[in-house]
Design a protein around this nucleic acid. Structure first.
Lengths: 153, 153
DNA sequence: ATGGTTGCAAAGGCTTTGCAAACAT
DNA sequence: ATGTTTGCAAAGCCTTTGCAACCAT
């Protein structure tokens, strides 16, 4: 519970920086979100909770959260930096349907074992990973089959 | 050999578009590159081969190459769209050393099997995947150990 | 001839930054 | 009191777009 605040505080101290209301609010906004978010999402989330924080400050704070190991970059989306928080959000993979844009998240043990093996084969530690699969989900495949029946495109 | 030109031509036709010198030059520039590239890389590559193509046109062309299945988006780099070409460049994973920035590429069969299983478990086809592992390479671990011996930071 | 394509320069969107005021300790 | 942090607005960067000239067929 709120363990992430400790982590951030420790990080800030170690860098000679201070914990402020603003940073605390941003941190909370990050952990309210349960999936991917970008700067705009946080900005809106903060407005909703009546904590007015400028976008500039959010931009300035996210790299610290990244450094502190509290968030990580998420899938590359078009042209925006997306993040996701890490606590209670173990490493996982994303399944993206390129047709409808749906995203599933999933953790998989066997996958993790394989990645560990690969990393250590190359003398690497495995600190983090991003696995994104792209394909077509069942729904979209069905839909497009129906469309084809009616005469393609 | 040059098979990619066929592929692109076919794609262009199917969309009512034309093959032009400019597009051919961009395609060549893409396949000259052996690793990741962004728009600026292509632009410089084209200048070097005395084919002056505007950045705007490169920006306009890359989505077509993507659509045609000739390139794919690469690792999320800071703030730029990176691509890599696909021919002779099978799906693979990236190992990134977060300390020195070194990137290894590697194909792995077992990994691919696991990803296929996961996709189909969710009813997805597996059209493409991106696997990025982040960690510290052996060199950097050694270096940082030495640094520590001399008195940490 | 005709419709797609290109380069240019302008516009757009997201991100960064200089600076003075506000804040934490 | 002192150094850090913030918001604002301006600047910066990468990317997109309108348009007139150009090219492919």
């Amino acid at each position: 519970m709120r363990e992430y605040k400790e982590v951030f505080l420790k990080y800030l101290c170690s860098e000679g920086m201070k914990m402020t209301r603003t940073r605390e609010a941003i941190l909370d906004a990050v952990f309210v979100t349960h999936s991917h978010f970008d700067v705009e999402d946080l900005y809106q989330q903060l407005r909703r909770s009546k904590k007015l924080v400028s976008r500039a400050t959010i931009y300035r704070t996210l790299p610290y959260l990244l450094e502190a190991g509290l968030i990580r970059r998420s899938m590359c989306s078009d042209h925006k930096e997306e993040y996701e928080h890490i606590y209670g959000h173990p490493n996982h993979l994303h399944l993206l349907c390129v047709s409808c844009g749906k995203i599933l998240e999933q953790a998989d043990n066997e996958l993790e074992q394989v990645l560990l093996r690969i990393a250590s084969q190359h003398g690497f530690t495995l600190d983090d990973y991003v696995v994104s699969l792209k394909g077509h989900c069942a729904d979209c495949r069905n839909k497009s089959n129906k469309d084809n029946d009616k005469g393609e495109r």
